[in-house]
């Protein structure tokens, strides 16, 4: 038998938006893999293309956006160009998603039980009674007290944290192989944040579900992820084992992110150490997109840096890495 296929393999993915003002290369030549049960952290400032990457995987890119090229393989099966029915079967069943704002993700006019049960019956012939019991148990598993009563509620009757737990319960309902969690704690209080991360992590471990955890907050993934991809302006600029990347960042952008992780939580302020702001994807600087904000930039950076592998299990898009590579 050949080596086991990774749960997800993304290769040279390009997702562009064809807007009136020009082509927005929201995701450009992005590659990464997630093995079974692995947790991959995708980190980057807002607008760097993380969400678009997530939606590309499940085939939910809408006009004016389009996956232009690349490959997305789920357990070896190519998803780009797969039939809508096949994609529907994978969505929510094999690959589930959790969104950023829990107050917007649940349908305001449908009861919680409806929204859980339908997620089960969309993918199997489970009878209503069994589906309802599974839903109740799923709510219990994400730490929702008296799940039977909560099932009868409408979303607005629950707090933001509770609603995000419901969304997580929905994601886990069909025991998917991969969950894409798109900044699931960004909209929540710090204490709730920690609880949610804990619930999600525990469930993933228990069920062996792989996790793509998207965040703008390096501190969040530091303790959670096995591996980290750092995204900037639609590209993955650095990848490696989580501890490795955090201890020895190679890309100036990553180094800036780490420098700006505050010791105590002061949200919003933490990117201040990287001068300037995210460039518009419509007119990126020639060569390295980070050039205008990088203190190491020189004439070589007018070329586009290709992916290099400065160490085992590390990849990088930069001509002048910050430190001289990880210690052996």
């Amino acid at each position: 038998m050949s080596a086991p296929k990774p749960t997800l393999a993304v290769e040279d993915l390009c997702t562009y938006f064809f807007t009136k003002s020009g082509v927005v290369k929201a995701v450009d030549k992005v590659s990464f893999e997630i093995g079974a049960g692995e947790v991959l952290g995708l980190v980057g400032e807002s607008g760097s293309g993380k969400t678009v990457t997530g939606f590309s995987i499940v085939g939910l890119i809408d006009q004016p956006g389009r996956i232009v090229s690349g490959s997305i393989r789920y357990k070896g099966e190519e998803l780009i160009g797969a039939s809508e029915e096949r994609l529907r079967h994978i969505r929510g069943n094999r690959i589930a998603m959790i969104f950023q704002d829990p107050t917007m993700t649940l349908n305001p006019v449908l009861r919680i039980d409806t929204q859980l049960v339908e997620a089960i019956t969309a993918h199997s012939d489970t009878d209503a009674r069994t589906a309802w019991e599974q839903s109740r148990d799923a709510l219990g598993q994400v730490g929702i007290p008296s799940p039977e009563e909560r099932l009868k509620c409408y979303p607005h009757e629950l707090s933001g944290g509770m609603r995000q737990r419901v969304a997580i319960a929905i994601a886990f309902l069909n025991k998917p192989n991969l969950i894409i969690a798109d900044e699931p704690t960004t909209a929540l209080d710090v204490t709730i944040q920690a609880q949610i991360i804990y619930e999600a992590q525990t469930l993933c471990r228990k069920t062996g579900t792989a996790l793509l955890w998207i965040t703008h907050d390096l501190a969040v993934v530091a303790g959670l992820a096995d591996r980290i991809c750092v995204m900037y302006a639609g590209r993955i600029v650095e990848e490696g084992g989580a501890d490795n990347v955090i201890d020895r960042p190679l890309h100036p952008y990553t180094a800036g992110l780490i420098g700006s992780v505050p010791s105590h939580n002061r949200r919003g302020k933490r990117l201040a150490q990287i001068p300037g702001s995210t460039p518009s994807l419509l007119n990126l600087p020639e060569g390295c997109a980070f050039r205008t904000r990088c203190k190491f930039n020189d004439d070589t950076c007018l070329e586009e840096p290709e992916v290099t592998h400065p160490a085992k299990d590390r990849s990088l898009r930069c001509f002048h890495p910050v430190s001289r590579g990880p210690a052996p």
């Binding site: 939910l60 969505r91 929510g92 589930a96 969104f99 339908e118 969309a122």
Partner: peptide
Amino acid sequence: KFARAKGL
């Protein structure tokens, strides 16, 4: 979008 992501 979430309903679509659920595979409904």
